[in-house]
Design a protein around this nucleic acid. Structure first.
Lengths: 168, 168
DNA sequence: CTGAATTTTCAAAATAAATTGAAAGCTAAT
DNA sequence: ATTAGCTTTCAATTTATTTTGAAAATTCAG
């Protein structure tokens, strides 16, 4: 496979994968394009390469910047803004984990904690089952939360090493 | 908060969370309803409680069964089918992990492996950067894959224990 | 300050995804 | 073999999400 074809394939597949994870297809594609672009590129470059509108590029780029995955680059002498993506995949992963944890996992745990305090007789069959299920999810969520915290703070080789160690 | 209100809250929030993870809102709500229902319930019960159509319930229930999260229950003497959800959250989590790994992570790693074999001079700047990025994602994906494999095979207390151990 | 270049916004349009409901398909009892 | 009771399917509709593109806002050079 040729490089151009491979890049194209990567961009389109990355977009498809994104949709399975609650990520907008175009955002994932823009991210993919920036990942495989050696030098910073402009909004016009992105519009052209992915054949999407200016507004679309602009909104998604800002989202990606919000996720800390892309940043603006000022090129002296140039009027236009250039963009570049973080290429270190471990950093990309930790940023995504950190952000999703904050946006989704943390609020969920908070909600579950509230639901656990349902009023009524704790010995009642229905209440018992409800608090057990909610408590179980909360516990699992908190555990995952802690694990992800450790991962985010750790170095990539910690991840690699620990996993391999588990296998002996 | 009263039990009925808490259940309602859980169902609607669980549905909302689902959408952030690429899961259809209604499927998540049906799952939530089954999680907090002590006894098995019928399609009609679900239709009524969530005010959704028969077809919708049927399709999503079948999907949930496909994920191994819900199962049919035959109640002797009853003509209707009843449904019940796995209540052990650890089992729920491992089933979801196993299934998403198979459906999404594994194919992604396979694709990346193909893209790594892009033809051309490995010293070429563009090719080098491309294979580095793809290789990095593949490595991270494989590592995650292995970690998830271990988790799925392990017991819940392994997860809890290991995490706590990391904290010393 | 002026205006050309560029970025941002957002209502409207297009597209994609979820939902309905009625018809068709089963199944089990008689 | 018939049929009532229940389940499944899927084309049509509704709803939700994404995308567009032109206008407004911003930026910066002269």
């Amino acid at each position: 496979m040729k490089l151009t074809e491979a890049k194209q394939q990567f961009i389109s597949s990355w977009g498809a994968f994104g949709t399975h994870w609650g990520i907008n297809r175009t955002m994932a594609q823009i991210h993919a394009l920036l990942l495989v672009s050696v030098d910073p590129i402009t909004q016009d470059d992105i519009m052209e390469q992915l054949t999407i509108s200016r507004g679309n590029v602009n909104m998604n780029i800002r989202d990606l910047i919000g996720w800390g995955l892309v940043e603006r680059v000022i090129i002296t002498g140039e009027r236009k803004e250039y963009f570049t993506a973080e290429k270190d995949i471990w950093k990309v992963a930790t940023k995504i984990i950190k952000e999703r944890k904050k946006r989704e996992l943390d609020p969920m745990i908070k909600l579950l904690a509230q639901l656990e305090n349902v009023e009524g007789d704790k010995k009642d069959k229905d209440i018992k089952q409800f608090t057990e299920v909610i408590g179980g999810i909360k516990k699992l969520g908190s555990q995952a939360d802690k694990l992800l915290d450790v991962m985010v703070k750790a170095e990539e080789n910690w991840f690699t090493g620990s996993v391999l160690k588990i296998f002996k």
